[in-house]
Design a protein around this nucleic acid. Structure first.
Lengths: 238, 238
DNA sequence: GCAAAAGTGTTGTGTCTACACCCATGT
DNA sequence: ACATGGGTGTAGACACAACACTTTTGC
């Protein structure tokens, strides 16, 4: 059987198709996921990822953007990428669903108005989750953590402008461990990811030197540390 | 609309669902992809990726393994992972298909018997490809190249045992640039990926010192260079 | 002046590349 | 002996973490 036969066989599988999103944001110093509380069986009162059915004719990315629009304004999503596609026939009890999972990131300065059944939950310490959604949240968190190391994806969790301590706190929350502002600055400036502005943030009531304001040079995903090893010969050491 | 409503609406999209695979192997010193020549319109005589319809009830991974079994013996696949899911409504002219693309890797010592309409093609220099399949091949190639740098995925392109020059040639073919056997050995041994055996390969007719035989310590995917930067504090430098 | 926070200087370490040199075999 | 290919030793370039120290503000 070939993927492109002109006549479609009868015994074809016709699972329903949904798109899901792990929407992450750093809130109150913790990485949090946008979850939605189920109102009916199965898995009543368990929490699940936002998303829903694919409609005619739209791509999966259009689908997840459309579904998310009822939770958060699409303009608040600084980044959206595909995570994985789940297809185990028994992953949902009632019907066979194929689910394309996406990772969405919301900058820390946004505070979307949420519908009543929806709220943010720290990814460390998730509430009881429906179906296989807890694993998807972990996959999203891991993808973000990995990309923070070798891409400029920080732009998607940070506001347009920020001080280095603010950025350090965002990275620390997302990565789940302490981060040094000193070294974070050096790494990101050396790679050309961060750009210092001339402006400074006035110091807090407790005093302290005013912090310089930075921004990401570009707010589109780019790989900044392409080859860990095994670079082409003669391309210089890192 | 929610992903888990108990009643399924009428206007639901019901595209057909297929699985595709970019199967890669190093052959004759070049990274090659397993392609299949279309026998009918649309895109007659263009080359496409092996795969086909999802059947009831199987997962996408089971589906692609089943379809590949008609091309290559499944036991010859040393690694299989999901690449991306394509869903643009107009990506195929005749029907709307959602395609889950996988990356499969065949060790260099295998030589599967192929059906007549199927053959290997170097990924640099692909023949005219059907639909969006050329881009999927490039995505598979790029995924392999990236993972060669930070995982032990070499096990999936290498035979069970090999000398370092042989492994160097495989890495060079897959990466598309020259690789030093000296440094490849040091990187992979330092990381505990390679294991030297006591055995040696007898030298060729042209002479030369007999080469030591190595193998991968494990033939399951593992990340060996986890954090490019931004490691947790106090976790030592690389 | 003193505390607080930001920012710079500097040192040490581990990783990787490049290249010189040595080793073991066939002819 | 010498050509051929395998393997080791070593030096230099970087990137990074850690930490001491300086700068700039509020009180």
């Amino acid at each position: 059987m070939n993927s492109t036969a002109t006549t479609t066989p009868e015994e074809l599988a016709r699972p329903t198709i949904v798109s899901l999103a792990v929407v992450l944001q750093v809130r109150n110093g913790a990485l949090q996921a946008l979850l939605w509380e189920r109102a009916r069986e199965p898995d009543v009162h368990r929490w699940s990822l936002p998303g829903g059915y694919l409609l005619e004719p739209e791509s999966l990315e259009q689908s997840i953007r459309r579904h998310l629009a009822s939770k958060v304004d699409v303009r608040e999503l600084a980044h959206l990428e595909q995570l994985e596609t789940l297809s185990e026939p028994d992953r949902q009890p009632e019907e066979w669903q194929i689910a394309a999972a996406y990772l969405g990131l919301v900058p820390a300065d946004q505070d979307p108005v949420l519908p009543p059944d929806t709220s943010w939950h720290p990814v460390g310490g998730l509430p009881p989750m429906a179906f296989d959604h807890a694993a998807v949240v972990r996959a999203g968190r891991d993808r973000l953590r990995a990309k923070l190391s070798y891409t400029n994806i920080g732009f998607a969790i940070a506001p347009p402008e920020f001080t280095l301590s603010e950025l350090r706190d965002l990275y620390a929350a997302a990565l789940g461990h302490r981060v040094s502002a000193t070294n974070l600055q050096r790494v990101l400036v050396r790679r050309g990811v961060l750009e210092p502005l001339e402006r400074h943030r006035t110091s807090a009531a407790s005093g302290g030197r005013p912090a310089r304001v930075y921004r990401f040079r570009t707010r589109r995903l780019a790989v900044t540390d392409p080859f860990a090893v095994l670079r082409p010969q003669g391309s210089g050491s890192r």
